[in-house]
Simulated scan of single mutants.
Amino acid sequence: MTRSPSPVPGPGSGPTLPHAAEQYLAELAETLDELPPDPRQEALADVRAYLEDAVVDGRDLAATLTELGPAAQLGRGYLTVDPRSSTRTRPPGKGGPGSERFGPGGPESGAAHGGAR
């Protein structure tokens, strides 16, 4: 008996995302190419987790992607530098990555998923 390979989970090891979500993440990754590897991976992981949460919660994926805005626009927000701290800032959103959902300190504060990183 031959077993068919199981789908490989994304970096968040959450649910398998629909093609539209994976395409959005690929477009976002292109926009974030100029970021160093660690912040780039963190940004992609934040957005992936947000999309995975939407899928798990049964929210409409098309509406969620519309809420985030175009991937290139979201990516440009991640490239914005905060001149006061010389660190990258999170783009504003409507409940998406970089919004109040992650707490005032952003995802680094551990507020993103209810615990410290």
Rank of each mutant, 00 (worst) to 15 (best):
M1P: 11
M1L: 12
M1V: 13
R3H: 14
P5Q: 13
S6G: 02
P9R: 14
P11D: 09
P11Y: 05
P11F: 08
P11W: 06
L17A: 06
P18Q: 14
H19Q: 13
A20D: 02
Q23M: 03
A26K: 12
L28C: 11
E34M: 05
E34A: 10
P36H: 07
P36G: 05
P36V: 01
P39S: 05
P39G: 02
Q41W: 03
E42H: 10
E42Q: 13
A43F: 03
A43M: 03
L44D: 03
L44A: 02
A45Y: 07
D46T: 04
D46R: 08
V47H: 03
A49K: 04
Y50N: 06
E52Q: 04
A54C: 11
L61Q: 04
A63L: 09
A63G: 13
T64K: 05
L65P: 13
E67D: 08
A71N: 07
G75D: 02
Y78M: 01
L79I: 10
D82L: 04
P83R: 12
R84M: 08
S86Y: 08
T87G: 00
T87V: 15
R88C: 02
P91E: 10
P92G: 09
K94G: 08
G96Q: 12
P97F: 11
G98W: 08
S99V: 04
E100C: 00
R101G: 10
F102E: 15
F102D: 14
G105P: 01
G105R: 11
G106L: 01
G106N: 05
S109E: 08
G114W: 03
G115T: 12
A116S: 15
A116Q: 15
A116T: 15
